[in-house]
Design a protein around this nucleic acid. Structure first.
Length: 233
DNA sequence: GCGACAG
DNA sequence: ATCTTGTCGC
């Protein structure tokens, strides 16, 4: 997809660098005290067109009982294409709309994408965390930047990922025979705690943390019903 | 110049 | 990120 001429990448890079100075990599809450964990995911009615309609879902789980405590959705027309390292400019607007609808305040937000495992430390999880000042963690299904050694093929094997000699996150195999997840802090949390919280949010033998898994599944249903409704009218 | 590149 | 069925490895 061509990037429109009216998007000034240099300006967006400057904004990312400015926002990155606000990232806090210290724990705002001890990982053992975390109880309410949110999962954030986004989909689109049509990924091949611009503009398109973005849809966000945020779930909130009690991580001790894996009970769903809250679930909210939001829809928003978006006119920004997917450009690697600028994902937040496409997906954050609709996420913030869903965020406003939450009735309870989660301790941590797990977001589908990178945190500081990003060239300018501003993956979508960090961007969300800085803008809202919430505790956030990036949970990505594939790599954006950084090199890592392949974790052994057993549940919860992990390898550190360094960028510029700095520990930025971990490649974590959350399931045997599954590709690792790329976990990094978004904001207001340390690298180690980010991994601890994400792992503690995994139910049974699923690959993804339950809040994200449920948000993703719920979005599939929501989108299907939305397209059905649009087709009728 | 070439390849890599979250969702 | 969407669409889709069977199939393979625990």
């Amino acid at each position: 997809m061509m990037k429109p001429e009216n998007i000034d990448i240099k300006d967006l890079e400057k904004e990312q660098i400015r926002l990155s100075s606000k990232i806090n990599l210290k724990d705002k809450i001890p990982p053992q005290k975390v109880k309410l964990v949110a999962g954030v995911d986004v989909t689109f009615t049509n990924i091949w067109t611009n503009p398109t309609t973005s849809i966000a879902c945020i779930t909130v789980f009690d991580i001790d009982t894996f009970e769903l405590k809250d679930i909210v959705y939001a829809e928003k027309k978006i006119d920004f294409p997917y450009i690697p390292t600028f994902l937040a400019y496409r997906e954050l607007p609709v996420i913030l709309e869903a965020y406003k609808k939450l009735k309870i305040k989660p301790d941590v937000f797990l977001i589908d994408g990178q945190g500081i495992l990003h060239p300018r430390m501003m993956g979508i999880a960090s961007h969300f965390g800085v803008v809202t000042d919430e505790v956030s963690v990036g949970v990505a299904k594939s790599k954006l930047v950084g090199n890592f050694k392949e974790p052994e093929n057993k549940k919860f094997s992990a390898k550190p990922i360094y960028i510029d000699k700095q520990l930025r996150g971990y490649a974590v195999r959350t399931r045997k025979n599954s590709k690792p997840l790329f976990i990094s802090p978004g904001n207001n949390i340390s690298v180690d705690s980010a991994v601890k919280v994400a792992i503690r949010s995994i139910k049974g033998d699923y690959k993804l943390p339950e809040p994200i898994r449920t948000a993703h599944n719920s979005l599939q249903e929501y989108r299907k019903n939305l397209l059905k409704k649009k087709y009728k009218s």
